[in-house]
Amino acid sequence: MTAHEQFADDLALYALNALEGNDRANLEKHLATCSDCRRELEQLRGDGALLALSTIGPKPPARARQRLLDAIAQETASETRARVAATTTGSRRSWWGWLGWAATAAVVVFAASLWKENSALKQSLALMGSQSAQTAREMEEMRRIAAPILSPQAQHITLVSVKTPPQPQGKAFYLRNRSSLLFMANNLPALPPQKAYELWLIPMEGAPIPAGVFKPDAHGSATVVNPPLPSNMEAKAFAITVENEAGATTPTMPIVMMGTGE
């Protein structure tokens, strides 16, 4: 008896989620290394799908369609509200100059994630020959909204009190469940040669995580968009240090800017 024959019956049960205990653990170990058995598993799931077909006939009630579309619309709307609220509430206290930015940035973060969702959805739909023209229009609209922030040609203007000399400011917008981060700063002091600023995500526990190396432009402005970050990492704070141009894996003191969540 070969290894594959030994697992043949268990594979069928596994395809139906009906394999338990040690048999399941042993099979999963084997599947990790055996592409033949993985292919057979896909086939067996397909055989199960054929069995499922034997049920077709009943149609869902008409209200179910509207219920789904309402749920999708509601989810989209509440996600937008939550993001805008999260970014504007704090701004009212101490970020008057950032109010416009905060609202725009919330739209950009939302636009980026919606664009990501839309592009994945678009791919699936296109492959099935049912691409939605409305989705394409929405993507175009989101790109248009994002352009003033992401385009290198865009003018970035920060308004501050005329009596106060400009202070370095940074603002991070972070969605941990999407590992999505938008950081914008201005009035940053110029750097010595071969040096750059590095942004750090300070997690609730453990060492600071690099969140992008950047250099400000001639006006002291800089933007970091979606640096690679571990998934679902809760942030206690964000901080900035000055590092060599290539960036560092641990921050070099002193911290030049720091902020905690609002």
């Binding site: 499922a52 077909l53 049920t55 077709i56 006939g57 009943p58 149609k59 869902p60 179910a64 369609r65 789904l68 739909l125 099935m128 049912s130």
Partner: peptide, 11 residues
Amino acid sequence: LYDRYSSIVYS
């Protein structure tokens, strides 16, 4: 997609 596949899911 719903119009095309809801019947199989529901059944």
